[in-house]
């Protein structure tokens, strides 16, 4: 994870198109400017960044399923729960599953665990839009960098 660059996902460990499900992995850095304020002397990953992490995993799931034909933008966060603290160095497993594939939107359920214990979960919704200029190429680079290559996905 590079928190200050909003690069929350290190790698995709499972992309299951048939089950419409993704599993990702991310390691919280030992140091980040984020921890200087949250909180001084007691570093914890902010809940908003854990939400962003679930949103990005969900977003990559949607991108993989639609083969990067539309860009998902976060539009709603429901039932978000934060169940334990996340400290520097933690290894996170992020899972997301598609719950609704609507016309112009998609909904997911996502969760994060660390050492097998629940960290947080939420229901998320995304507006699907054409890729703004340049973003399509950047997202292709990013999805390839984390190991999500929809062209190579079967099923």
């Amino acid at each position: 994870m590079r928190l200050e660059y909003f690069e929350m996902i290190d790698m995709v460990t499972l992309f299951d198109a048939a089950q419409q499900r993704i599993v990702c992995r991310a390691t919280v850095p030992d140091a980040s400017p984020v921890f200087e304020g949250h909180f001084p002397g007691h570093p914890l990953v902010p809940g908003v960044l854990l939400t962003e992490t679930m949103a990005q995993a969900s977003g990559y799931l949607v991108l993989g399923l639609n083969r990067l034909s539309q860009m998902p933008f976060l539009m709603a966060v429901d039932k978000a729960r934060f169940r334990t603290f996340v400290e520097p160095g933690a290894v996170l497993v992020i899972e997301a599953a598609l719950t609704v594939e609507g016309s112009g939107y998609a909904a997911t359920k996502a969760s994060i665990t660390a050492d097998g214990k629940p960290v947080c979960d939420a229901e998320l919704r995304f507006r699907l839009m054409p890729f703004p200029a340049e973003l399509g190429a950047l997202m292709r680079q990013r999805t390839a960098a984390i190991g999500l290559v929809p062209e190579a996905v079967t099923s």
Partner: peptide, 17 residues
């Protein structure tokens, strides 16, 4: 889109928005 989500769920359909 929020309305469509709730309508889709309530009626078990997919509005072709």
């Amino acid at each position: 889109l929020d309305i469509a989500f709730a309508v889709d769920k309530a009626f078990g359909i997919k509005l072709p928005l």
